[in-house]
Simulated scan of single mutants.
Amino acid sequence: MKQKLSRREASDAVSDLGWRFLLGTIRTSVPVGSLAQAVAMATSAVAVCGDHADRHLRADIRPGRVVLTLQSLDHAAVTTLDIDLAHRISGVVHQAGSGTEPETGVAAPRSVQLLEIAIDALDIAAIRPFWKAVLGYTDEAGADGPEDPLVDPVGQGPAIWFQQMDQARPERNRIHFDICVPHDEAPRRIKSALAAGGRLLSAIRAPAFWVLADIEGNEICVTTWQGRDG
């Protein structure tokens, strides 16, 4: 029987495989040498997942790499079945001579990440239908309330979530980005952003999130799964 896992349980279950937990999913980036190899790698992943592929596996295929994502679409969460599928996929990836572990070194590309857009609002229920309609978005499984996040049904755009405001704040941005990164890569990402001219506005909620801004005050949160549950 499929069992939903906590953030920590999901992360701990796949970290040794090189997969990383991001926003209710587990992901890995597999390097390949061509688009044909990418298609072949994705095909192998689908095959090893069997009948579970359609409801659990997603693949982003590019000439240089394949990003594989596992999540129960019925629960919008990682389950014990997803962990089993990650082990199966890692096995066929290694058999093909590649790996699911993040590449290391100064010149190594980034591994996996997820972008969200956060919208501050005084009346979330009033503005949510507009954003749902104008973006062609839909409700996430099990989250169809008047203040719940919105997701792209075909997975091309970032999720939208809404942050409750107590009062109007015309002096600051009302929309900001959240970039969710692997928990073990967050310090390096923040260091790089600060070296590029950024400012650290707050680390009070770290390691759940750090608030950074560029020199003109445009904000972004660097987020991880840590600090959100046991």
Score class of each variant (00 low, 15 high):
residue 125 A to M: 01
residue 9 E to L: 05
residue 46 V to W: 03
residue 79 T to P: 12
residue 68 L to N: 05
residue 40 A to M: 09
residue 108 A to H: 09
residue 12 D to S: 06
residue 229 D to Y: 04
residue 226 Q to G: 01
residue 217 G to C: 10
residue 201 L to R: 15
residue 11 S to L: 03
residue 70 L to N: 03
residue 111 S to E: 11
residue 14 V to F: 08
residue 57 L to F: 05
residue 37 Q to M: 06
residue 87 H to Q: 14
residue 202 S to Y: 03
residue 27 R to F: 02
residue 55 R to Y: 05
residue 174 R to S: 14
residue 163 Q to W: 07
residue 58 R to C: 00
residue 202 S to Q: 07
residue 164 Q to L: 10
residue 38 A to Q: 03
residue 131 W to T: 03
residue 69 T to K: 12
residue 123 D to T: 01
residue 24 G to N: 11
residue 112 V to M: 11
residue 216 E to D: 15
residue 78 V to A: 12
residue 198 G to Y: 07
residue 165 M to R: 12
residue 101 E to F: 09
residue 155 G to T: 06
residue 178 D to Q: 04
residue 117 I to A: 12
residue 63 P to F: 03
residue 7 R to L: 04
residue 16 D to I: 01
residue 163 Q to S: 08
residue 219 E to L: 03
residue 132 K to S: 12
residue 207 P to N: 06
residue 62 R to N: 08
residue 142 G to K: 10
residue 35 L to S: 05
residue 74 D to V: 02
residue 216 E to C: 02
residue 199 R to K: 15
residue 116 E to A: 06
residue 157 G to Y: 06
residue 175 I to A: 06
residue 5 L to Y: 11
residue 113 Q to A: 13
residue 208 A to R: 15
residue 218 N to L: 09
residue 135 L to C: 09
residue 195 A to N: 14
residue 114 L to G: 08
residue 74 D to G: 15
residue 47 A to D: 15
residue 115 L to K: 12
residue 29 S to I: 00
residue 54 D to L: 07
residue 139 D to M: 03
residue 107 A to C: 14
residue 88 R to L: 07
residue 97 G to W: 10
residue 192 S to T: 14
residue 36 A to Y: 08
residue 73 L to E: 15
residue 131 W to F: 15
